[in-house]
């Protein structure tokens, strides 16, 4: 197994079940059914891009939610959340000023520091852009340390595209931003299709490129295959997986993916680590 960035192991004396209650300082509407929640960070809180928190609404339960804000502005930590069911529904009924529980950060992270000097491709589908945004912020902040950088992003409809207002900011930071949708509307002038196809527009992808992807699993599988075809090696290809999660600390058994636990060995994996299992049906 490659030496992936490992999580911050908690001191054994800490009760891993104990949440910190933090204030919701702002809630932003993003796209239909998706909002970003800015939380006041607990004292001394730091995280790495790609890590997630367990957000807790008493009486409803916890949900694993990636951190979507800039790692260098640790006073406020943002979570971009799609309203799905019980817990996320309760979060959507919260107001600024309310307090919710937070445990974290958990999990592995995008290898931002390791790829200085390389080309970087970020390939996201739908809400999968949220856990990649902290990495994009970091790449933009240290843009001169990297070769070519591209964000390839796809959603079902144009109205579902997250963070559209920041695309131009990223472009100004010399990041190529390629966007596609499955279904166009009357105003859409961009490409229609899926993320893997759009990768073909990046002829410079190759052995000196790393690709990081997050989105629906099927999209990531096709993206991975396309990336390999375009010369990216299994060691430099990273995916962020999603599984049912209860404890986030490797004690509840829910998030297993073959030999690993997504909560502590993932969610970010090198393709090489999980390749034998990624294409097994219902695994």
């Amino acid at each position: 197994m490659p030496d992936l960035p490992t999580l911050s192991a908690a001191p054994a004396s800490v009760d891993p079940w104990q949440p910190a209650f933090v204030e919701i300082v702002a809630i932003h509407d993003e796209t239909p059914g998706v909002r970003t929640f800015d939380l006041a960070a607990p004292h001394g809180y730091t995280f790495e891009p790609g890590q997630f928190n367990m957000l807790y609404v008493p009486g409803y339960g916890e949900a694993a939610i990636s951190i979507s804000s800039h790692p260098k502005s640790p006073q406020v930590i943002s979570h971009t959340i799609r309203r799905a069911g019980n817990v996320t529904g309760a979060l959507f009924r919260c107001q600024p000023g309310d307090r919710i529980g937070l445990r974290g950060p958990f999990g592995s992270s995008w290898p931002v520091g390791r790829y200085r000097g390389a080309n970087v491709v970020i390939a996201a589908g739908g809400i999968g852009l949220a856990p990649l945004r902290p990495a994009i912020y970091q790449l933009a902040a240290h843009r001169e340390d990297y070769g070519r950088v591209a964000v390839v992003y796809g959603s079902r409809h144009p109205k579902d595209l997250l963070y559209r207002e920041t695309f131009d900011q990223w472009r100004r930071a010399d990041i190529e931003v390629l966007v596609t949708v499955d279904f166009a509307d009357d105003h859409w002038t961009g490409p229609i299709g899926v993320v893997p196809t759009l990768l073909e527009q990046l002829p410079w992808m190759g052995p000196h490129t790393t690709l990081w992807t997050c989105g629906p699993e099927i999209m990531m599988r096709f993206t991975a295959q396309q990336a390999l075809r375009q010369g990216i090696t299994p060691d430099h290809l990273y995916l962020s997986l999603e599984r049912n999660m209860n404890c986030a600390v490797g004690l509840c058994g829910h998030c297993q993916f073959g030999p690993s636990f997504v909560c502590k060995d993932g969610p970010v994996y090198a393709y090489r680590q999980i390749a034998p299992f990624l294409f097994v049906h219902d695994f």
């Binding site: 008493p58 009486g59 409803y60 339960g61 916890e62 209860n246 404890c247 509840c252 058994g253």
Partner: peptide, 16 residues
């Protein structure tokens, strides 16, 4: 060893 955590609250929802 698999477990699941459930929320049990009183009627008011103030005690969980």
């Amino acid at each position: 060893f698999c477990t699941t955590v459930e929320e049990v609250s009183d009627l008011s929802g103030d005690s969980v």
